[in-house]
Amino acid sequence: MIRAGVVGASGFAGGELIRLITQHPGLELTFLGGSSSAGRRPSELHPGLRDNRGLTVQPVTEDVADRVDVLFLATPAPVSAELSSLFADRVPAIVDLSGAFRIRTPELHDRWYPKVERRSDLADRFVYGVPELIGDRLKDAALISLPGCYATAITLGLAPLTLGLGLRLKTVVVDGKSGSSGGGVQLRTSDLHPFRAGAIAPYSPAGHRHAAEVGDFLERSRPGTIGSLSMSAYGVPNVRGLLTSSYVFTDEEVDRRELNRAYLRFYKGHPFVRVRRHDETLIPVPDPQAVLGSNYADVTVLLDEEGGRIVVLAALDNLVKGAAGQAVQVTNLRFGLPEETGLTQQPVMPA
């Protein structure tokens, strides 16, 4: 069994990690870490959980390294940077769910994460990216940085165009909509029910750091791929789930049928990415409600000939494929397990 520890056990992503790890046939939950929730059982923090495994949340000390094979950091970025420095080279694998090491370029990191000081040598060592695109780099990786939830959806949507067809995307404009769980458990006035219910809140209308990490990753993967990538983000009344709509402009000729074939070809053999026609079900898809509770991402590509653009839609559960589920997925690949181990739950709908 692979011994797993979760730091940040009281948060939404931490709760999802506990849920998935305790159902995983190859993982054993051996440590729960936190500060303000120290001494509490998982079932106290997450009402849906009842299997405490005899564990309570404990302060994070150096001896944790002797108790785990993989350490999941579901912590704020400054905390992740500090803990990664403490445990690097002391545990076989660290999987960081925060933004501490997502952006490799120092200047870009400082712009979007000005309060996150990190060791430059660690930043160069962290493997970043969605597992469908970097699976071969995860084997024996000691340090893994998960993409953000929006970034996962955007990258899965754009990769067949850039890394598959080799198109140069002149301009990409992303519209992102996410449920309230994306903001975590912090108490903010704007998240109170009287303000959030029924609202479409433009909380980041002129740029988002997840778009910055996508641009950084794609540029490093294939230089010159994207001219510009910008994003507006909105909060919607859903609790879980997000949808990204990427509007892509290119000077290269594209064919509607070839686009669809390219996406199907690119994700062949990747069980968690479902390439879909938007009109194939009772409701138009991708729709976040069709993936809730699962590690699936639904992706659709359409050609808007009159508008001169490619429209790419991607939907996922921000707490599963956008966080905890993807963390388990990379852990499976890291330790040589089948990619889908412990992650075969079907979506819950309606939810």
Rank of each mutant, 00 (worst) to 15 (best):
E305G: 00
K115E: 13
L108P: 03
D66I: 10
N295K: 10
A123P: 04
N295H: 12
N260Y: 15
I94F: 05
L163R: 08
G8F: 08
Q289C: 04
Y296D: 04
I283M: 06
P114M: 08
S246A: 09
E305M: 03
T171K: 01
I103S: 02
I283Y: 11
R277T: 12
E44K: 10
P271R: 06
S294T: 04
A153V: 02
K115C: 00
T341H: 06
T300Y: 12
A77W: 03
T61G: 05
I21Q: 01
S180E: 01
G48F: 02
H109L: 12
L143F: 11
A123H: 07
A77M: 01
T341C: 07
V275Y: 04
V6C: 00
N332A: 14
A100I: 03
A4R: 07
P131G: 06
E213A: 11
R41L: 08
S35W: 15
L187P: 02
G179M: 09
D110Y: 03
A142M: 14
D121F: 14
V116S: 00
P286G: 01
A9R: 05
E28F: 12
P350K: 03
P106L: 10
G54A: 00
V95Q: 11
P25K: 15
G336L: 04
L319T: 15
N332E: 15
T105P: 13
A290L: 01
L333A: 12
G308Q: 15
A38M: 08
A77Q: 05
N238Q: 10
H270R: 15
S230K: 11
P106V: 09
L303D: 06
P223T: 07
P350E: 04
L83R: 12
V91Y: 04
H210Q: 09
L156W: 06
R168K: 12
D69L: 04
V79Y: 00
V239R: 14
V7S: 00
I154Q: 08
Y113F: 15
P237N: 12
S180H: 01
D63V: 13
P147S: 09
T281W: 11
S35Q: 13
M231N: 10
P92M: 05
T22K: 13
R90H: 13
T171L: 05
K321H: 13
L319F: 09
G135P: 01
P92F: 06
R3N: 02
Y234E: 13
D317I: 13
R50G: 04
Q289R: 14
S230R: 13
T171Y: 02
A13H: 04
L282I: 13
G325W: 04
R265S: 07
L343I: 07
S178Y: 10
V57Q: 01
G227C: 07
E132S: 06
L282D: 14
V79S: 09
R188D: 11
V185G: 06
P202I: 14
H208P: 06
R222V: 11
E253M: 05
A100E: 00
T300N: 08
Y263F: 03
H109P: 05
R220L: 03
A65I: 01
I94Q: 06
S37V: 08
K268G: 01
V6M: 12
V328G: 00
Q326M: 08
G54D: 05
D51R: 15
E280C: 07
I310C: 10
